[in-house]
């Protein structure tokens, strides 16, 4: 079942990226009479590259900063900032990603930059929240033992807390990444290069073939990346000594 899903996703993604001509006959009925069937203003592979680049450029700093902030407020010295930071994370997530994107434009103009800023800002919240949940989920007896055997605070964090919190941290990065993949699509409305461009082109020229190409490709890539994180999380759970199988 899982195998079949992987094969199907890889086949569709590969086909759209590297052999679009094979799919032309299937898409032709959707294109307007006489109009182009395959998106021709850029190759889908270059757009996919640009799309993924937006996400990576945002997710790397999101992860570093979100994780660091969560670690800081979970230390005794940062405890004073804990209630507020949780409220902000909670309220911040009621902010729609599109709103963050739209408000980045007046600040940074058009292009990739406002998109990356929006993806970065929105990505912080799930990573922060999940890291915090992961760190707080370390059983009290385990955290106490780590101190009692004589670990330094740095050793407690690196050897005990982070490995145990890792599955939840990765879950947070997965949520952020999936949202970023989706918001990057909308980024093409502020002139960032992404796969959204294909869908927008289809909408403006009333070309359903374009919409299907762009939509199916973004969908497949998102699901592939989601599944990839799933493997990573299963591995981290195993490493964290969490019984897998009855979970998830």
């Amino acid at each position: 079942m899982t195998m079949l899903r992987w094969i199907l996703l890889l086949a569709i993604t590969g086909g759209l990226l590297f052999a679009p001509n094979l799919l032309e006959p299937m898409l032709r009925p959707l294109a307007p009479a006489g109009g182009p069937v395959l998106y021709n203003r850029a190759t889908l592979s270059s757009l996919t590259g640009a799309h993924l680049m937006l996400v990576v450029m945002a997710m790397v700093p999101s992860t570093i900063i979100g994780l660091t902030l969560a670690v800081l407020v979970s230390r005794p010295a940062g405890a004073e900032f804990l209630p507020l930071s949780r409220t902000i994370a909670n309220i911040g997530q009621t902010f729609p990603p599109v709103a963050v994107l739209a408000l980045s434009v007046p600040l940074l103009g058009f292009g990739s930059l406002p998109t990356i800023l929006a993806l970065f800002l929105y990505g912080l919240l799930p990573i922060f929240e999940n890291t915090l949940a992961g760190l707080r989920g370390v059983p009290g007896a385990v955290a106490l033992s780590a101190r009692a055997v004589g670990m330094t605070p740095g050793q407690v964090l690196a050897q005990v807390e982070l490995p145990i919190a890792m599955p939840l941290i990765l879950e947070g990065i997965r949520i952020s990444t999936v949202i970023a993949l989706s918001t990057a699509t909308i980024g093409s409305t502020v002139a960032a290069r992404s796969l959204g461009e294909v869908i927008i082109a289809g909408l403006t020229s009333n070309n359903l073939a374009f919409i299907v190409q762009g939509g199916v490709l973004t969908g497949c890539i998102a699901v592939l990346i989601y599944d990839l994180f799933g493997l990573l999380i299963a591995f981290a759970k195993h490493r964290a000594g969490i019984e897998t199988g009855d979970q998830l």
Partner: peptide, 17 residues
């Protein structure tokens, strides 16, 4: 100091990972 003293607690606090 802590490395030189053994400590056992209820629930043991074994490192699950």
């Amino acid at each position: 100091l802590r490395r030189s003293i053994g400590y056992v607690i209820q629930g043991y606090g074994l490192f699950p990972h």
